[in-house]
Amino acid sequence: MADPAVLDALLRQLDRRQFDLVSVSSVRAARSVVPADPSTALILLDCVLADGDAPALADLIEQHDGPPVVMFSSQAETVADRVRWLDVGADDFVPWPASPAELVARIRSVLRRHGPEPRLAPLQTLSAGELVVDMLGLRVSVGGQPVRLTSLEFQLLAYLMCHPGEAVTREALLCDVWGYHTGPTATVTVHVRRLREKLEPDPLHPIYIRTIWGVGYRFEADVVEGRSERARR
Results as ranks from 00 to 15, higher is better:
residue 3 D to L: 04
residue 9 A to V: 05
residue 15 D to L: 09
residue 18 Q to N: 10
residue 23 S to I: 01
residue 24 V to M: 02
residue 32 S to Q: 11
residue 33 V to W: 08
residue 37 D to L: 03
residue 39 S to E: 14
residue 43 I to D: 02
residue 45 L to T: 08
residue 52 G to Q: 08
residue 55 P to M: 07
residue 57 L to R: 04
residue 58 A to C: 12
residue 61 I to D: 00
residue 62 E to W: 00
residue 63 Q to W: 04
residue 67 P to L: 04
residue 68 P to N: 05
residue 70 V to P: 00
residue 71 M to E: 02
residue 71 M to F: 01
residue 73 S to F: 03
residue 73 S to R: 06
residue 74 S to T: 14
residue 77 E to G: 04
residue 78 T to D: 09
residue 85 W to N: 10
residue 86 L to G: 00
residue 87 D to C: 04
residue 87 D to R: 15
residue 89 G to L: 07
residue 90 A to Q: 11
residue 90 A to E: 11
residue 91 D to W: 01
residue 91 D to P: 03
residue 92 D to T: 08
residue 93 F to K: 10
residue 94 V to F: 06
residue 95 P to I: 10
residue 95 P to C: 07
residue 95 P to R: 14
residue 97 P to G: 09
residue 97 P to N: 08
residue 97 P to R: 07
residue 100 P to N: 10
residue 106 R to A: 02
residue 111 L to W: 10
residue 112 R to V: 09
residue 112 R to K: 14
residue 114 H to M: 08
residue 115 G to D: 08
residue 115 G to Q: 02
residue 116 P to G: 13
residue 117 E to M: 09
residue 118 P to E: 09
residue 118 P to V: 04
residue 120 L to K: 13
residue 121 A to V: 02
residue 122 P to F: 03
residue 122 P to Q: 10
residue 124 Q to P: 02
residue 124 Q to W: 00
residue 125 T to L: 06
residue 126 L to T: 05
residue 127 S to C: 02
residue 128 A to F: 05
residue 128 A to P: 04
residue 131 L to W: 01
residue 133 V to S: 02
residue 133 V to D: 02
residue 138 L to K: 15
residue 139 R to L: 12
residue 140 V to S: 05
residue 142 V to K: 11
residue 146 P to Q: 11
residue 146 P to L: 12
residue 146 P to I: 10
residue 148 R to Q: 13
residue 148 R to C: 06
residue 149 L to Q: 01
residue 150 T to F: 03
residue 151 S to W: 00
residue 152 L to C: 05
residue 153 E to A: 06
residue 163 H to V: 00
residue 164 P to I: 02
residue 172 A to R: 15
residue 172 A to V: 13
residue 173 L to N: 08
residue 174 L to R: 15
residue 175 C to H: 12
residue 176 D to G: 05
residue 179 G to F: 13
residue 183 G to D: 09
residue 184 P to L: 01
residue 186 A to T: 08
residue 186 A to E: 14
residue 187 T to C: 11
residue 188 V to M: 07
residue 194 R to V: 01
residue 197 E to T: 03
residue 199 L to E: 03
residue 199 L to V: 06
residue 201 P to Y: 15
residue 203 P to Y: 08
residue 203 P to E: 08
residue 204 L to M: 12
residue 207 I to S: 11
residue 208 Y to V: 03
residue 209 I to F: 06
residue 210 R to T: 14
residue 210 R to A: 15
residue 211 T to E: 10
residue 211 T to P: 04
residue 212 I to H: 06
residue 215 V to N: 11
residue 215 V to L: 14
residue 218 R to Q: 14
residue 218 R to W: 03
residue 219 F to D: 04
residue 219 F to H: 07
residue 220 E to W: 15
residue 221 A to Q: 15
residue 222 D to F: 06
residue 222 D to C: 07
residue 223 V to N: 08
residue 224 V to A: 12
residue 228 S to A: 13
residue 228 S to E: 13
residue 230 R to M: 10
residue 231 A to I: 00
residue 231 A to P: 00
residue 233 R to M: 07
